[in-house]
Design a binder for these strands. Structure first.
Length: 431
RNA sequence: GGAGAGAUGGCCGAGUGGUCGAAGGCGCUCGCCUGCUAAGCGAGUAGGCGGAUACCCCGCCUCGAGGGUUCGAAUCCCUCUCUCUCCGCCA
């Protein structure tokens, strides 16, 4: 959510930013409502002031035993007028908020302009695409051949876009989660969180999933509860409506969660394999930082996520998203894309974003800047900046491991770094 | 699921219709004092919105949330949420 004052004072800038993301919100309507609201507010506040003053007078007289019927009658009229105005203002506020919640974040200046992923900027490569002396198989074939993945039975149990991990497949999924959590808590300074997987509507609104992306979410019938599409939601909302102390910042959190996505609108895409599921596992990284630190914190966050791929020895590249591919809430975003032989291309395994104060304003996450020595006051609260990134998406990483480290004989070599987490049979997956 | 209790400022806690955004205490900040530390003394210490704007400042709102009664609500009434205790059930 953007600051109303900012929108009021820089409507053109906001409009340009929106268009660069291919978003059109009713900015003009918003500004009209804002105008109306402020003029109504002025009127009603004058009336309320009158009410407060006269009520005290009435009270004072009453203490002397006098009932000022005339003034009480006047107050009755004023009160009903106030009630009318208040109702009107409330309605206007709702309209403003409704629009405001649908206005996307403004891209950072260094974000490249562009409409589609074609215009994303490749920042760097790590490793080189795996070469095979034989015909490599896609991970779903490897997974089913080695009895690690069972798509058919998952289909029976749940439906399409579900998978069941079995045996060492299940073990590897769990191993990846543990490897990542240990790395981020042990070496990168994140605090581990195990959050609820169901959250309420306020939390979904706080991080920006609602109200715009309702159809992408799974909602629990008859309850104000949604299955989380990412741990970003519960973890960012950890500090919703809180005022943090500057000394506490930055706060780093990492969380494993299952993630649930309806994938509405992607029918027919990635129908095979682990790449696009209704439920998948992910280790997430979330940061709360001072505004002036968020640009560097994003770079560090990306590196923390990259470290996982490096440990696993998987070739990847880092892409800086162009304006059209930024998404709704981000001001700047890097994707980590791992080499996936079955698509003969790189596939996203992490998305690292700086939201600046966009989520913090929605969710009311503030901090109190430390007061410089000697200066009397000026300790007004300010919104923190939030960032998050996958560190990483487990299923896609597992797919990448199966595909990149498959052998001609059908077995798969387990990356060195993962072996302590999945002991047995010399680090080879065989049937 | 049944019965009961509660929700007030960073924390504890008073306040049952009027001058209460809220006593008192703790904590914190600044200053004074003391050889240092502790103690002591004085002052300050909620968030939001609107206006004014170099600065000081002014108004309105907020005592879990929403509605109602009233000239006037932290205080009375209704609904909801959350927390706690006991019983039942359950992984």
């Amino acid at each position: 959510m953007l600051d109303l004052k900012y929108l009021r004072e820089n409507p053109e800038e906001a409009r340009r930013a929106m268009e660069s993301k291919g978003e059109a919100a009713e900015l003009d309507a918003l500004l009209e409502w804002d105008e109306k609201r402020r003029s109504r507010l002025k009127e009603v506040e004058t009336l309320k002031n009158r009410r407060n003053v006269v009520s005290k007078e009435i009270g004072a007289k009453k203490a002397e035993g006098i009932n000022d019927e005339e003034k009480m009658e006047e107050m009755r009229r004023i009160s009903s007028q106030i009630k009318e105005y208040d109702a009107e203002i409330k309605e206007i506020n709702n309209k403003i908020l409704e629009i405001q919640l649908r206005i996307p974040n403004i891209p950072d200046p260094e974000v490249p302009a562009g409409d589609t992923e074609e215009e994303n900027e490749i920042v760097r490569y790590w490793g080189t695409p795996t070469q095979f002396s034989f015909n490599p198989r896609p991970h779903w074939e490897i997974g089913e051949a080695l009895n690690l993945l069972d798509f058919n039975r998952a289909g029976k149990i749940s439906g399409s876009r579900f998978v069941l991990y079995s045996g060492r497949g299940a073990q590897m999924e769990r191993a990846l989660i543990n490897l990542m959590l240990d790395l981020h808590t042990g070496e990168h300074g994140y605090r581990e969180i195990f959050p609820p997987f169901l959250v309420n509507g306020d939390s979904m609104t706080g991080t920006g999933q609602l109200p715009k992306f309702t159809e992408d979410m799974f909602k629990v019938e008859d309850y104000d509860l949604y299955l989380i599409p990412t741990a970003e939601v519960p973890v960012t909302n950890l500090h919703r409506e809180e005022i943090l102390q500057e000394e506490e910042l930055p706060l780093y959190y990492t969380a494993y969660s299952a993630c649930f996505r309806a994938e509405a609108g992607s029918h027919g895409r990635d129908t095979r394999g682990l790449v696009r599921q209704h439920q998948f596992n992910k280790v997430e990284l979330v940061k709360f930082v001072r505004p002036e630190d968020s640009p560097q914190e994003l770079e560090k966050l990306v590196q923390d996520a990259e470290r996982v791929l490096q440990l696993l020895n998987l070739p990847y590249r880092v892409a800086l998203m162009c304006t059209g591919d930024l998404g709704f809430a981000a001001a700047k975003k890097y994707d980590l894309e791992v080499w996936l032989p079955s698509s003969d291309n790189y596939r996203e395994v992490s998305s690292c974003s700086n939201f600046r104060d966009f989520q913090a304003r929605r969710a009311g996450i503030r901090y109190r800047p430390a007061v410089p020595e000697g200066s009397g006051g000026g300790k007004k609260t300010a919104f923190v900046h939030t960032l998050n990134g996958s560190g990483l998406a487990i299923g896609r990483v597992l797919a990448a491991i199966l595909e990149n480290f498959q052998q001609e004989d059908g077995t798969v070599i387990v990356p060195e770094a993962l072996r302590p987490y999945m002991p047995g049979r010399e680090g080879v997956l065989s049937g």
